[in-house]
Design a binder for these strands. Sequence first.
DNA 1: TGTCCACTGGAACGTACGGCTT
DNA 2: AAGCCGTACGTTCCAGTGGACA
Length: 411
Amino acid sequence: MTDHPLDAIFDRFITSPSIFKNHEVLRPSHIPDKLPHRDYEIQFLGKALGSALRNNRPSNMFLYGKTGTGKTIVSKYVTKYLRQRAAEIGKNVILSILNCVEVDTDYRVLARLCEVVGESVPFTGLPTDVVFKRFKTKLDSKKQLLIVIFDELDKLHHKSGDNVLYQLTRINTDLKKAQVSLVCITNDLSFKETLDPRVRSSLSEEELVFRPYNAAQLEDILGERAVDGFNDGVLEPGVVSLCAALAAQEWGDARRALDLLRVAAELAERSSEERVTEVHVRKATKQIERNTVQEALVSLPVQTKIVLWSVYVLEKSDLKVITTGDLYKVYQELCRSTALEPITPRRANSLLNELSMLGIVNTKVVSMGRYGRTTKVSLSVSAREVRNILVEDFHIKKVSDFTADHLLEKN
DNA sequence: TGTCCACTGGAACGTACGGCTT
DNA sequence: AAGCCGTACGTTCCAGTGGACA
C-alpha cells in the first residue's frame, strides 16, 4: 500500500466511532413510528380519511399551519397507514401527494395525476383540457378512490389560479365508478380568502389548524429522533434543548429544530470530535443560513443576477437610499459592460420583486410626494456573501470592480 | 387643497422552443 | 409537414397612486 494524501482523513472515518447511528432518521422527510404532540391531528385526519375504507368518499379538507408544524408529516403518516390497511382489505385507494413547489402549474398537476392512475402523457405539448379528459376517463375506468394531497397549495395558486382546483372539486359529479377527495395544505393562513368562492366552499368541508410546537414539545420530538439517530452519549446535555429553544424563538418550527441538530452533529463529526456541543449548534445556525442563501443565489438566471449586482453596487456606494430609478441606471451600465442586452424597467422590476420574494432583498414601495413614487431597495443578506457567490458567474466577473460613483455625481 | 412626479403593477401580446395530433 | 398547445422569458401600453409641495 502506498501513502495516499487522503489516508489520514479516511482512516479517521474508519477507526473513530461515528456520532450517527442512523443519519436518515434525522432528516425532516423521515416518517417516524411515533409523532409526539400530534395525536389530535392524526386522529382528526384518520377519522376523515378513514371513511375511504368503508367505500365513502372522504370530505375535502383544508390543513393550515406554519412551516414545520407537522402538516406534511402527519398527512404522510396517516396516508401511509391508510394505504397499508386499504391494501389489506383489497380496497382500491390511490394516494397522491403533490408538492406544489415543483408541481406548480395546472398542466403539471394533471400530468402527475395521470401518472398515478396509469395514463402516460408527455410533459408538454398537449392542451390542458385534453390531459384532463384523459385523466378522467382513465380514472373512471374502474371503481377506485383517489385522494390527492396538495402540499403548499398556495404555490400552485400563485402561478396558475384556481382552474385545476375548480375542475377537481366538480369532477365527482361526472364520475360514475371512481371518486376523488382533495386535501389542501397551506402555510398561508389568509390564502383561503383568495380562492374562488365556489372552490373555497367545496374544499373546506373540513378544516384543521396545526398550532406551532412550543420549546418543550420540540424537545420531545428531537429527543425521540435522537434515540434512533445518534449513538449513546454523543450529545452533550443541553444540546437538544438548545436546538429546541432556538427553533421555538420565531415559531415552533420542527423542521428547523431538526436541521439544527443534524447539522450540528455533522459539524462535530467533520472536525472529528466525539461529542456534539452547544458550540456546534451555534455554528450550525450560521451554516444553515449560509446554505439557503447560497442555494438561492447560485441558481438565479443571468438577468436576475445583474439586477442583484446592481443592488450590491449601490449598497457599496455612499447613497443613503436605493430607488428603482437609480437601480435601473446602474443596471444599464452593467449590461453595457457585460455586453448583455438590457431588459426593460418593467421586467427588471418584476425580477426585483422575485428577489424580494426569495428574501434576498428588501423592497418597500414609498411615495416621495412631488418627487414621485418608487421602491426603496436594500440587501437582506450580507453583501459579502452576495459578492462571493455572484463573482463566480462569468458575466458578473467582468464587472466585479464596477462602482456607481460616476453615475451618482450627476444627482 | 389640488397637482403632479416617478414610478408600480396589471393585462395583453410576442417569440422561441419542445412536443403533441392528424 | 402543418397546426396546435404549454412554458419561459420578455415587451408594450397604460391606468393608478401616495404624499410633498405650491
